[in-house]
Design a protein around this nucleic acid. Sequence first.
DNA 1: GCTTAACGGAGATCCGCTCTCCGGTTACGA
DNA 2: TCGTAACCGGAGAGCGGATCTCCGTTAAGC
Lengths: 205, 205
Amino acid sequence: MSRRDSVRNRERLVTSAREVFAEHGFGATLDDIARHAGLGTGTAYRHFPNKHAIAAEVLRDATEQIVVDAEEALAIEDPWDGLVQFFQRTASRQATDRGLYETLTGQGDDDEQARIWPRIVASVTELFERGQRAGAIREDAAPQDVAAVFAMLGPAFAMSRTIDPELWRRYLALMLDALRPGHPPLPVPPPPAAALDTILRSSKK
Amino acid sequence: MSRRDSVRNRERLVTSAREVFAEHGFGATLDDIARHAGLGTGTAYRHFPNKHAIAAEVLRDATEQIVVDAEEALAIEDPWDGLVQFFQRTASRQATDRGLYETLTGQGDDDEQARIWPRIVASVTELFERGQRAGAIREDAAPQDVAAVFAMLGPAFAMSRTIDPELWRRYLALMLDALRPGHPPLPVPPPPAAALDTILRSSKK
DNA sequence: GCTTAACGGAGATCCGCTCTCCGGTTACGA
DNA sequence: TCGTAACCGGAGAGCGGATCTCCGTTAAGC
């Protein structure tokens, strides 16, 4: 049987990783995580072969929540309200969890992004098209634009971190206003749906 | 007197730097620039003590253009048309010049940003407030939001690079629609004007 | 042609991150 | 209570990527 301290330290590491990734993003070091947990690096590497392994464990919960957000949004009768709730909840999570933003956005753990992405896309597309059929969303927008909106919120999250934790709500509201009907037609067609996965990976080298 | 080949090589380096910074951003290496110019690293370091020095020379022209854009926009009678032209021209420059975006956004050369920033802010504030007085811009927007909009366009520029060079126009149009009057009030006040310089530095460590 | 400034690029140096190794410590069973 | 296996900690080896130097070679200018 395994020792009590070993079990306890593993938990501490996971908790620490959650906090460190949230605050400093995926660029954080396993050493950082260990130190933040009050443990040595050796201990960290005994429990997890590398950063990827511990990240996988931490990220799964966070990304899974996004899917839940989308499903809960679909349960709301009013299509626009549903979309707004989805955006707000999901954005709120990303505003306080830099690692989550990076993962969804293709700047973090590729495997986890690949795993969760199709499921998010499926739900969001449904949510979006429902809103569009109901006339709550402008005709010339496309589901792909949702991904773009989240990508563009990234800098807003960064500003929130240094200026005012709630600032991102202002810019999300701005984007939502733009998605309403009653605007002149958009000048360029949306990116092809097939490019959806590439959309956010773009900032990569 | 200095040798002709020396003069020629210096020019080649500057041209090369312009191209390399535009394509790969400020993270590019002096070695990269030298190789792209078809010259050796030693040559690069003889002409410029470090990356900062050559960047300063290259960036000045590019940032200066932004100021010109703003002034030209002020010369247009219709306040809204002026603002749109400013956004389109300046965004167009940034879409094709990654180094320029990074500089304006505080992810590149800090000195050059500090140098040009006040002048851009002055012009843009005037441009923006003129539009607002004319009722072309929603009441609850603020000049600071312009900086935020440019920050948020960053991911759109990245997408343009990999998907379609003109794609950023779609998302700029989206943001401009949102700046028009006739929307529900924004939920959070704009960042303080004093935070303007910090706004974009946010993505930094 | 000769002198000498300028060139080129291999490699020294630095830096930050990843991961290992092993002496010291501690939990747990007998 | 004691012995031992399991676990801990953190110094530092290894690695990769960037910056910058050094010096033998090249060619411009007279």
